[in-house]
Write a protein that binds this DNA or RNA. Structure first.
Lengths: 350, 350
DNA sequence: CTGAAAGCGCTTACAG
DNA sequence: CTGAAAGCGCTTACAG
């Protein structure tokens, strides 16, 4: 007698997986009964505990695994919730993706995330693909054109919610960019005053002026200055795009004597800001303070980082799932407060 | 005449989406023909260009979108490639997820990623779920127990590949941890010698000694010391787990005069190392040099970071997709070289 | 060049 | 307490 490799006996080369028919045949019952036992509806069918146990046992024996394709097709509900997201490799979106999966599972839904790399065409493509897989819901995160996606979903009768960036055709959950930016600005100004004894305006760097979130943050930035009676310069707002290189380039062209305090609009921009900073003379570097709208654990530990505004992912997603469950398709924007996170206490001083 | 909201006319409340039957009826042809035109097999059926055009047009008119559930069920191939991955919010795994999606699409496959948070039970759960959705392939990334997952897949007749952490029952693609660690160790030692004029052993911090990758890195670490004739101390290897807090705690207990050079085993560990560092007196901080096995753009800009070993995601995934296409289910481990990335030129000096 | 028919693996209303 | 039957929306071999 030879010992076969574990699992091999079930792995008949060309075999398909076992179905409810196979289980039914062995147990000596009907596929209907097997189906209802396996999907949990058997109690209301008043199937005997004994039969149910036999079926469950045999299903296990045969390594039965329900074919979701068939199940979804028949039910006409997939219980899949799709998400499109711009990136994974960023703490904010990474946290959104992770939290989204966890919460989807808690709600009995199967999450499918697609990363669209901030490419508008890919966003549409991805949304269409997810609709083709018949998602029951779609979360459009940070999409450049949320309304086009909303339209696609509406035509398909699929509920959609915008996250992070608002749209007009579906409900949206976003951060309170205005208050977050106002608070962050105020903290950076205070720190500059404390460390340098003077009140000069900060420079806002990064983002696109046309972008909803950046616009709201610029408002908060302006108002925080106004509250302290600090007058902005013409060059105080540099919405030069998100790319790190853009920030480096922009900063290099500005008057350095006016760059003592920086409001950095995202961690991606901060990568460029930090590179620029370390390439300056140490005597200058010691005189700079900055903060960033967006959180990253290492960025928080960079010297002279005053603090970061962290978008509060859990309440954002809680709001999303709450809306998913509501029947009315109200649009409108739901804002979630940001959390302020101080930077490392580590300062470069002259 | 009232103007209806865009898209509304198609959004008949309770309507299902249009099917090939609807398209066939309008065009006056059969569902078979519509199906083959829509899925691209019509050329070999020698359907007239004219009919095909009509069908395509009408499908567009009706906002037709193929029901993948039905299509997959019938074809008995899903063209889905699943991936389980420990985390998203980390540059390495984030890059893997993004690159995986891009390459899957290039190969005509639909990627579905599930994040398993390093939880062995969740890994099994997730693998079973993906198998229930009838993925054609599964990539098991950084799984704590790759062989259990391989067994599940083998029983289901699904091809599986291990990524980042090797297993024995399926082919594996991993980083060359030994060479990467040896090189990184050597660079940190050189920098310490250059800056301090002495050759003392480094301290290896983080990871689990039983973990395959950590073991390989420890080997490289040891050999690099040996090559330079530097004798390790009893306390030189501190595989205290990955958690940041563990590293902080461990470092706090060690003799500080021996902690001038650190080999940090992952960015998650580095978070703790950096916190510990900044909490020390500045006079000590200036005398520390460290490097990290893992890359992160902000961590790279931390002062006194000598450099980072970056795992080379693109060739790793290229190897994965190459293996996916091979018919033979050979196991074995395929190693990919790491890239060395210098830290910022920024040093704290006394 | 095109259509009728069978069937992928389920679920569920219906009938006992 | 349980089963036969219809049907979800496709695809494809077969027949013309």
């Amino acid at each position: 007698m030879s010992i076969s490799r574990s699992g091999t006996q079930k792995n008949r080369q060309n075999s398909k997986r076992t179905t409810i028919y196979d289980v039914a045949t062995v147990v000596g019952t009907s596929p209907s009964t097997v189906s209802s036992v396996l999907n949990g509806t058997w109690k209301k069918r008043r199937i005997s505990q004994k039969l149910a146990d036999q079926i469950l046992l045999e299903a296990q024996n045969q390594d039965y695994s329900v074919n979701m394709q068939a199940s979804m097709l028949r039910r006409e509900r997939s219980r899949i919730v799709g998400m499109i997201i711009p990136k994974y490799d960023n703490r904010y979106f990474g946290a959104i993706a992770e939290q989204f999966e966890t919460m989807a599972r808690q709600h009995g839904l199967f999450p499918v995330i697609t990363c669209t790399r901030r490419d508008p065409e890919l966003e549409i493509e991805a949304a269409k693909a997810l609709l083709s897989y018949r998602v029951d819901y779609l979360i459009a995160t940070g999409s450049t054109d949320p309304d086009s996606i909303s339209r696609l979903c509406q035509d398909a009768g699929v509920r959609v919610i915008n996250l992070d960036l608002p749209g007009t055709l579906a409900p949206s959950v976003i951060s309170d960019n205005y208050q977050g930016a106002r608070h962050l600005t105020s903290v950076i100004l205070d720190q500059c005053f404390k460390d340098f004894g003077r009140s000069e305006p900060l420079t806002f760097i990064g983002g696109r002026g046309t972008d909803h979130n950046t616009a709201a943050r610029v408002s908060g930035f302006i108002d925080a200055h106004q509250e302290k009676g600090i007058v902005l310069r013409e060059t105080s707002i540099q919405t030069c795009g998100y790319a790190a290189e853009k920030a480096e380039h922009t900063l290099a062209l500005l008057d350095k004597t006016q760059l003592k305090g920086l409001f950095v609009n995202s961690t991606i921009t901060l990568e460029g800001v930090a590179r620029w900073l370390w390439n300056n003379e140490p005597s200058f570097v010691t005189q700079v303070r900055y903060g960033c709208f967006d959180w990253d654990p290492f960025a928080a530990q960079l010297p002279n980082n005053v603090g970061m505004a962290q978008q509060d992912v859990i309440p954002m997603l809680e709001a999303v799932f709450e809306m998913l469950e509501q029947t009315s398709v109200t649009s409108g924007v739901h804002q979630i407060s940001c959390v302020f996170r101080p930077g490392a206490a580590f300062r470069l001083e002259s």
